[in-house]
């Protein structure tokens, strides 16, 4: 294609958008709303994943020592070297009893009488993506270790939640994308229908399909990118406002923030906008090219 011809297509696309203002505004509005919804689901999914990642960081492995161990620090030194262990915290048996009392009141210490049968223990904090069950297995093999508890149920529950979040998120995103694509194709089809006479005349004077298609394709792409820009603006401002308003509840409701995530959101929205606009125009035009 000659550069002059591309210039002609671009000029025609821009003229088309300006000339058919009402349809342009309608299509732009629908694409923006669609991408906005898509962005909301994207934010929801990303935050759910963020939340489960944070919860994963809370997973700890509790290692109880044998009562015969006289030097817990030696065992602790070995536990600290295990792969996947980020930090170890010593919990002496007196602290264990105090924790029981804090949790269950006097009932918690009734059985203790004067003697404290609780063993000394270590709490192992895990490095990112470390497998608690694997660490528990390794810790059991360390001399002086009596028992290891890794919160198996909680770990399994968390893994299930992560998987579920991923699947549900993907399904929701796909459904939203399909719904938005359907609406966008129909909207662009309306704009093409309004200009079917123009397409017919172009074909009758000898325009090839690609010559007819290009200005419409560029119009769709421009609409898609503009819609993505508007949706991104609304989402980033709205989400920023939400994060700011909920900052006091951050401990209970942690929300993603930061520039990197914004970049991801922008890339996703602009890619979808480009695809929706381009593909929407391509599909919409197909039937009117049969002249």
């Amino acid at each position: 294609m000659k550069p002059r011809t591309f210039g002609y297509f671009l000029r025609e696309a821009l003229h088309g958008l300006v000339r058919n203002r009402l349809m342009t505004i309608t299509a732009l509005g629908i694409i923006t709303i669609g991408l906005f919804l898509f962005g909301i689901f994207l934010l929801l999914t990303a935050n759910l994943r963020y939340f489960t990642t944070l919860a994963w960081k809370e997973v700890e492995v509790r290692v109880f020592l044998q009562p015969s161990v006289t030097d817990p620090a030696t065992v602790g030194a070995q536990l600290a070297t295990l792969p996947g262990v980020a930090k170890i915290t010593f919990v002496p048996k007196a602290e264990g009893a105090a924790t029981l009392e804090r949790l269950f009141g006097q009932q918690g210490t009734l059985f203790l009488n004067d003697e404290n049968p609780l063993p000394d223990a270590y709490t192992l904090s895990l490095a990112e993506k470390a497998d608690p069950q694997e660490i528990a297995k390794l810790a059991t093999a360390v001399p002086g270790v009596e028992e290891v508890i890794c919160g198996q149920d909680f770990v399994e529950f968390l893994e299930m939640i992560i998987q579920l979040t991923l699947i549900v998120g993907l399904i929701l995103l796909t459904l939203t994308a399909l719904a938005v694509l359907y609406i966008v194709v129909n909207t662009i089809q309306l704009t093409v229908y309004a200009r079917r006479k123009e397409v017919e005349i172009m074909k009758l004077v000898g325009a090839t399909d690609s010559f007819v298609r290009w200005p419409f394709l560029l119009e769709g792409i421009i609409l898609g990118l503009l819609g993505a820009g508007l949706a991104f603006l609304l989402l980033s401002k709205g989400y920023g406002f939400l994060v700011h308003r909920l900052r006091l509840y951050r401990r209970f409701l942690p929300l993603l923030s930061g520039g990197e995530f914004q970049t991801h959101l922008m890339v996703a929205l602009f890619t979808m906008g480009l695809f929706f606009g381009g593909f929407g125009s391509h599909v919409s035009l197909k039937r009117y090219l049969k002249v």
């Binding site: 000339r19 006479k197 123009e198 017919e200 005349i201 074909k203 009758l204 004077v205 000898g206 325009a207």
Partner: peptide, 19 residues
């Protein structure tokens, strides 16, 4: 498309682009 470029056509309803 090439054939149509070698044939001129005029129509009863003119088929002009109004804009």
């Amino acid at each position: 498309a090439l054939l149509r470029r070698s044939i001129g056509v005029i129509f009863q309803d003119y088929k002009l682009l109004p804009q």
